[in-house]
Design a binder for these strands. Structure first.
Lengths: 209, 209
DNA sequence: TAGATTGTTAATCGATTAACAATC
DNA sequence: TAGATTGTTAATCGATTAACAATC
């Protein structure tokens, strides 16, 4: 293993490997070669071996990879075994949908709480998650160890929230608003779900052949 | 203009350009150089000029780009002026959230209808969009010109829906389920929103410095 | 053992950046 | 005119693919 710099492209492929390996596990497949995994995922065997070799030696010559083992390794690299904790800010339709439907636990996350300004939802629970008032956000973050904050608030509110929480030591944001957040500190990681960028990409593709 | 092959990387940047140009328009900025746009977007001026030059000559030496004009050009390339029509399949929490909150019109899309199996929602309207029974989906698609189908159904149902709609001529799918859809026909474009891939990428980044 | 398949090095390909003549 | 900035060609950089010795 040569611990090189891991490129963004490689990182983006890891969750996809993990997803396919989960599939294979569920199907009871015991071993797989880079060649057949490549066929399934529509990438070259070379790339698969290169990608894995960034992190270690997970295979065996003449055999391939043990699916269960490889799945565990990649899960470990992604941190799914780390019991990360997160909170959701903004319990509108989207925040609601995430809390109700998204399988956070599958990615190793526990949802500790949700926050909102509306008196109508504050005090209720969603999927056993308490909805707390926005006022109490900073105090809450001071006493609980929170790894990631999910941003499902109106976009006007979001940069200010990020600035304040960054100062309190939050290092991960999952942003669903349609703006480009700024994180001064390079330690702070922001991952965006830009619905409109995605739809516009599709729009381009159907418009141009 | 040299009409070369447009790489995936370029296409992915277009919506981001469009977003920033909308910002600039809203702020009343009249002209911008590749250099200052680059500063704002944190990419090189070279890349910006290269990207735009794939599609035409939108600037003027010594001046830069007219913001309003460039915005219109890129909007046109993305197809936002094409009045695309879409339907939403699956009106659970997420489908509901999209119909209620997402500004489809901003990307040039009109939502014509939603479909669901549940008698509880069929017959209602959401944001003036009628919710129709799944049974009527194929008949509906045969008589209405639909460009994109939004997939917010449980993942067990989704590949079958895609296969059937592909046969009826649908060429664009916006997939929110956590599976890798297969489109035999290369004309069929599938754009995925993989929440869990995104969250796992964030997980990796906070776990590894 | 022979066949299969790895991990890794080298070759290729493509994308990003730099440079600069053209020109507003 | 002089300064600024484009569009484009050339140079660089990085990512993907191919090849192959090592070995299970």
């Amino acid at each position: 293993m040569k611990k090189q710099n891991i490129s963004d492209a490689v990182i983006r492929r890891l969750p996809r490997y993990y997803r396919h390996l989960n599939d294979l596990c569920a199907k009871g497949v015991v071993r797989i070669s880079s060649h057949s995994l490549g066929l399934k995922m529509d990438i070259t065997a070379s790339q698969i071996r290169q990608d894995f070799s960034c992190f270690g030696e997970f295979g065996q010559q003449g055999y391939g990879y043990n699916v269960e083992e490889l799945r565990a390794e990649i899960g470990h690299i992604l941190g799914v075994d780390q019991d990360h904790h997160l909170i959701v800010i903004g319990v509108g339709n989207l925040g609601h949908a995430l809390i109700q439907n998204f399988r956070f636990a599958q990615s190793g996350f526990t949802v500790d709480a949700a926050f909102d300004v509306s008196p109508q939802v504050v005090g209720t629970t969603l999927n056993n998650i308490p909805v707390l008032p926005m006022d109490s956000l900073e105090d809450y973050v001071k006493v609980h160890k929170i790894d990631v904050v999910v941003l499902t608030v109106p976009k006007a509110a979001v940069q200010d929230i990020v600035d304040r929480l960054t100062q309190l030591g939050i290092r991960g944001f999952w942003n669903f608003t349609n703006i480009e957040l700024e994180a001064k500190d390079p330690e702070v990681k922001i991952e965006n779900i830009h619905f409109s960028d995605s739809l516009l990409t599709l729009s381009y593709r159907i418009a141009n052949n």
